[in-house]
Design a binder for these strands. Structure first.
Lengths: 210, 210
DNA sequence: AATTCGATTGGCCACGCGGACAAGAGCGGC
DNA sequence: GCCGCTCTTGTCCGCGTGGCCAATCGAATT
């Protein structure tokens, strides 16, 4: 028998396992039995923590959004805006994006997921626009509409994630190069300043072994 | 009983129904019984045309890729490259992109789909690079690396499709504006030339009623 | 008009799913 | 050391699924 665990801890365990499986198998294919096996418990236990499968998946996506928002917050509040922008534009680790791409494909059919994703994206764009404003304020670049520039860069990053993570058409280095070059051109930054100032931290979270 | 049909015609009917349902419900949720009901036959008949569910879905994605490639081809061979670029960058109709977003999320788990998608993307990028080359040759713009520019614009378009179709964060007009502005800046085109030269044809194919 | 071939039907099967629940087992309060 | 709470187990159920197949029907050929 699995050792009795603190309920909050078990809950987190289940959510983490769910996200790992969603990244690996896709939202629609994850079964309660899979999650239970991943955690190492019987599938009946999952229902002790989440009344329905739908609630489990909703909680998992919420956790993913919250984690992403925390990372955004960390970047947005850095002292130096240009390194913050460089890291913002760097390709998010693989595991994250499999969850996001899956979420995009589910969003049109799942109003709550859709609402959660759009709220997060709006906040995220606002934070990115804030970074852009600080760059402009420091005299290092220009922007006639930081919000529009943020939306443009967000779309580019998401598209690059599709090309890199889902399709494997470009490697991580080219994805970063494209994002950096486009941002530098758009914001009138000195060419090459972004690649020189990035920190490349390890932001991996849910390890997936394919 | 459904009237006896020409086999090729019935096959196309089944594939079209499958694509409609994939766009509406997502790849993993489409059942053979759903497809049969959409066509108006019994589920046993589907197996008469496709041995397994997997083969059916593969055929459907192939058909989608082929249709998209034909549209690309049409645009790439237009006489005037700038209107061709404008239409290339215009937001692809809703129905198409629900299928693509779903395909992106499935590709990492489905080697054949992955291969088909990457081959199509490479051809598509090559065609877009050809359009860019013709613009440069006509003296209307500049590009130091048409392939890289094509990949950048493709990523931007895909990302804009996510923002618009899946998340509804931006409307079609803003998606087009962002794509046009970015392309004009990147290729050194006269500002506003793209929006003035677009043809906005109706490229809708698989009508979906949500 | 009879024949033939295959498109079409409808019922069948085993399987895995989400959900439900009674019984068991660990742990803190007394 | 006992009690009580709840975390955890194992089993059960009905349902929908993909796949299978024998029987039926319809149109073209002869």
């Amino acid at each position: 028998m699995a050792t009795r665990l603190d309920p909050a801890e078990r809950r987190e365990q289940i959510i983490a396992a769910t996200l790992r499986l969603v990244a690996r198998d896709g939202f629609a294919r994850v079964t309660l039995r899979d999650v239970a096996a991943e955690v190492g418990v019987v599938h009946g236990l999952i229902r002790h923590y989440f009344a329905t499968r739908e609630q489990l998946v909703a909680a998992a996506f919420d956790a993913a959004v919250l984690a992403e928002a925390a990372e955004d917050e960390e970047l947005a509040t850095r002292l130096e805006p240009i390194p913050a922008l460089a890291d913002w534009l760097s390709t998010t680790p693989r595991d994250h994006y499999f969850v996001w791409i899956d979420a995009w494909s589910e969003a049109p059919r799942n109003p709550e997921l859709h609402a959660s994703l759009t709220r997060h994206h709006r906040e995220s764009d606002a934070r990115l626009a804030g970074i852009i404003r600080r760059i402009v304020a420091a005299g290092d670049g220009t922007s006639s509409d930081p919000e529009a520039d943020a939306r443009t860069l967000t779309a580019l990053i998401d598209g690059l994630a599709v090309q890199h993570h889902a399709l494997g058409l470009i490697d991580e280095a080219e994805a970063d190069r494209i994002a950096f070059r486009t941002a530098e051109a758009r914001l009138g930054l000195e060419a090459g300043v972004l690649v020189r100032s990035r920190a490349t931290p390890d932001r991996s979270r849910w390890a997936v072994t394919h």
